[in-house]
């Protein structure tokens, strides 16, 4: 269960603050797929960044599985993010000088506590096979299409077996076939690993795939 209470966040640009988020209360159920929709620039990515601990709110709290994310130190939040959260970024953010295989394994390179094990190798094999990415593993990001990069990001998010997946429009640049495959993998993962998914999405055609729908303007009182 994700509990958000009295959350406020504002960006500070040149000593001027711009109120972005004011959420009095929000509850997101565990082991469910939740869609988060809203106009561009309304603060959906900011909310995801607050949940991952990348940003710190000015006030309020975020509890994930009874863990107070906002009360943790920077190091603790970072470790929590590494261990429990899979984040599919909006801008893909693949490292250009690493081949695809190494990009997917990136969480293991940046955290010495993570050890690459047989189960991770199996997961990599399974994900890349299902997403038809095996032939691309030796390629560099500059050699991939937008859709291939997006699928690679998804692989990277799932390789550490997170319990919470935050996805920022992961199907935006995919064709129907690939989109369906991505959704199928996420569905499969959520049910197998008992994970929770929160996805920012504008595609109304897949609205029914989700268990819950949150409209950002309904929860944000800015």
């Amino acid at each position: 269960m994700i509990h958000i209470e009295n959350l406020t966040f504002q960006y500070k640009v040149r000593n001027r603050t711009t109120p972005t988020i004011r959420i009095p209360a929000l509850r997101i159920q565990k082991h469910r797929k939740t869609m988060l929709s809203g106009k561009s620039g309304c603060g959906k990515t900011t909310l995801l960044n607050l949940m991952t601990g990348i940003l710190r709110p000015q006030s309020g709290s975020i509890h994930i599985d009874n863990q107070n994310i906002t009360g943790m130190s920077d190091a603790a939040r970072r470790l929590y993010r590494l261990n429990h959260i899979g984040y599919v970024l909006q801008e893909f953010s693949l490292i250009p000088h690493l081949k695809l295989r190494d990009n997917i394994k990136l969480p293991f390179y940046i955290n010495p506590d993570f050890k690459w094990k047989r189960e991770h190798q199996d997961m990599l094999h399974k994900l890349t096979q299902r997403l038809r990415m095996e032939p691309l593993l030796k390629k560099y990001p500059t050699q991939l299409s937008v859709g291939e990069k997006q699928r690679a990001c998804l692989c990277r998010a799932l390789i550490t077996s997170p319990t919470l997946i935050l996805a920022d429009e992961p199907t935006a640049n995919l064709d129907e076939e690939n989109r369906d495959e991505v959704l199928h993998i996420l569905d499969d993962y959520i049910h197998t690993e008992q994970a929770t998914l929160i996805m920012v999405c504008h595609d109304k055609s897949i609205q029914n795939w989700f268990d819950d729908h949150i409209s950002f303007k309904d929860i944000n009182h800015v």
Partner: peptide
């Protein structure tokens, strides 16, 4: 810059 932001986003510390 993007590379370092990605590392931080994925949980890497600034010491990384």
């Amino acid at each position: 810059k993007d590379e370092f932001n990605t590392i931080k986003t994925l949980g890497g510390s600034r010491f990384v």
